[in-house]
């Protein structure tokens, strides 16, 4: 899967949905897997329900931290409304991962949608061992939230 080429992932959503948390987790996973990684987002006014977008790029050597136009391989969107403003960034055969990529009725805590969709993303990137995902998830949440987020991740992972 990941040879010399760079894989580009974009996570998009609304301020407060956990876009940055999801991209932090993913960044840690690919970093721990030994890839070069760059991650970039525009933030500073994200608290007020505006759009938040985070770019993560990994591979052997990554230069720019921003995914160039139409080079996104996987677009993970935490809310349907954010598809329209981001979908143009996908490559022709790029993959769109969105809330209805999973069975939402099985998601016990709606706030863990970010981690559930990372679970979906993980099915496209089989070279990244599950243990790295789980430990990055644990690193990013307080202990009492570990279980709920692991369950959300597995739900996403089993959706495909």
């Amino acid at each position: 899967m990941v040879a010399d080429n760079i894989i580009n992932v974009i996570v998009a959503g609304i301020g407060g949905q956990g876009v940055l948390r999801a991209s932090d987790i993913f960044g840690q996973v690919v970093f721990a897997a030994g890839y070069d990684v760059k991650k970039s987002e525009v933030h500073g006014m994200s608290q007020r329900g505006g759009s938040v977008v985070s770019d993560i790029r990994f591979g052997k050597q990554v230069f720019s931290p921003m995914v160039p136009p139409e080079e996104c391989d996987y677009l993970v969107v935490l809310e349907e409304t954010q598809i329209e403003s981001n979908v143009h960034r996908l490559r022709p055969n790029g993959v769109l991962i969105k809330p209805d990529s999973i069975d939402l009725t099985k998601l016990r805590n709606k706030r863990s949608i970010n981690v559930a969709l990372l679970g979906v993303l993980s099915t496209y990137l089989p070279d990244l061992p599950e243990e790295l995902w789980l430990s990055a998830i644990r690193n990013n949440f307080a202990e009492k939230l570990h279980q709920i987020n692991e369950t959300a991740f597995r739900l996403g992972k089993s959706s495909r």
Partner: peptide
Amino acid sequence: VPRGKPPEL
């Protein structure tokens, strides 16, 4: 390019 949702209070 389409713009995202602007911030609000």
